[in-house]
Amino acid sequence: MNVIVAGAGRLGTQIAQVLAAARNEVTLIDVDDDRVAELQGRIPVRLVAGDACEPALLEDAGALTADLVVATTGDDEDNLVISLLAKRQFSVSRVAARINDADNAWLFDERWGVDVAVPSATPLISLIEEATGATDTVALLRLSKAGVDVIETAITPQSSAAGRALGEVRLPEGTVVATIIREGRPTVPDPATRLRPGDELLLVSHTATEREIHAAFQ
């Protein structure tokens, strides 16, 4: 699946990483050059600096062949414009948009090209499930076409993995850590990284269950 995510804040970056880990082709756009430069080489997606409200930039980012566009900027007006362009100009089959201000929720419908409107408080699991149309959810997300599960676990002060290096944690076979979200920011996992309470981990596995992942870290 070809995916464009507009907005490289925490939510947009998490969505991009999860979908990329599930073997989708993902392009992440952000208007902030510094944010794009910060993410270069740290996440397995194509990064584009620029305003996703500009049709030319969306086209350069691959909108003509995109299966899904997710607008996750912090500005509702931008998210609506991106959605409308994706649907009307580029005929993207599925468009999801984040609602930042609940008072604007009534605008996020088919008139603006929005197939899936997601309030900002919606958990990541629900946003990705609704945006992709995936209904077979195991733990965080299952994308049946990719044949992998993306499972989320959090490190608490009571977790057995707290204070240990990631490389010291014995993972189930066929499982890798896709990203560690620390203090709201995704980081590239490294075997030497010491896990801290508050860390959120996204793991990709072909075989492991949520229970097995929980046992490894908790």
Rank of each mutant, 00 (worst) to 15 (best):
V3N: 01
A6C: 14
A6H: 03
A8Q: 05
G9A: 09
R10H: 08
T13N: 08
T13S: 15
Q17N: 14
A21P: 03
A21L: 12
A22F: 02
N24Q: 15
T27H: 13
T27A: 15
L28K: 13
D30I: 14
D30C: 14
V31K: 14
D33Q: 14
D33E: 13
D34F: 14
L39G: 08
Q40C: 06
G41H: 02
V45R: 06
R46D: 07
D51M: 13
A52T: 05
C53I: 08
E54I: 14
A56F: 03
L57D: 00
E59D: 13
E59R: 15
D60P: 00
D60T: 09
D67C: 09
V69H: 02
V70Y: 03
G74C: 09
D75T: 11
D78Y: 07
N79R: 12
L80V: 08
L80Q: 03
V81A: 12
K87V: 08
K87S: 13
F90I: 07
F90V: 07
S91T: 09
S93Y: 01
D101S: 06
W106Q: 10
F108D: 01
D109M: 04
D109W: 06
E110R: 15
R111L: 15
D115E: 04
P119S: 06
L124Y: 04
I125L: 13
T132S: 08
T135C: 02
T135N: 09
A139S: 13
L141P: 02
L143F: 11
S144T: 15
A146Q: 07
V150F: 04
V150M: 15
E152A: 14
P157V: 05
S159C: 06
R164K: 15
G167H: 02
E168S: 15
V169E: 00
L171Y: 00
G174M: 11
V177K: 11
I180G: 01
R182L: 14
E183Q: 15
V188P: 00
V188C: 01
V188S: 05
V188Q: 07
P189L: 09
P191D: 01
T193N: 01
R194I: 09
L195S: 06
V204D: 00
T209D: 02
H214M: 11
Q218A: 12
